[in-house]
């Protein structure tokens, strides 16, 4: 598996990680090696095999439609929600202006 620098840059951009040309060039063979190694999976015959969906035989539990039933998963906690924000103003999170 060979990965070129352009691919590394495209993936980094998808993952929103700024990357320099040098780092992309350095990372290309490294990613190529890792991907080459995991491609070993191609040799496994998986015809008729379902992909695993739940590691334990368990299905989804549903909760009742009650507001703030558990304070840990309820609302009305604006101070907590904003407590760690790098920039919060007037009850909002603030980010660099987005032009839509």
């Amino acid at each position: 598996m060979s990965v070129d620098t352009a691919t590394v840059k495209r993936i980094a951009s998808l993952a929103r990680i700024a990357i320099t040309d040098e780092d992309a060039a350095r990372m290309a063979p490294e990613l190529g090696n890792i991907l080459g190694w995991i491609e070993m999976l191609e040799e496994v015959d998986t015809t008729g095999i379902e992909p695993m969906t739940a590691v334990i035989p368990n299905t989804l539990r549903l909760r009742d439609d009650v507001v703030n039933a558990d304070p840990l998963t309820g609302g009305g906690i604006r101070e907590q929600v904003l407590a760690n924000a790098p920039v919060a103003e007037h009850g909002f999170f603030a980010v660099p202006k987005v032009i839509e």
Partner: peptide
């Protein structure tokens, strides 16, 4: 009011 109906989730 903004962010008053927001849980940690």
């Amino acid at each position: 009011e903004p962010n008053t109906q927001v849980s940690l989730v």
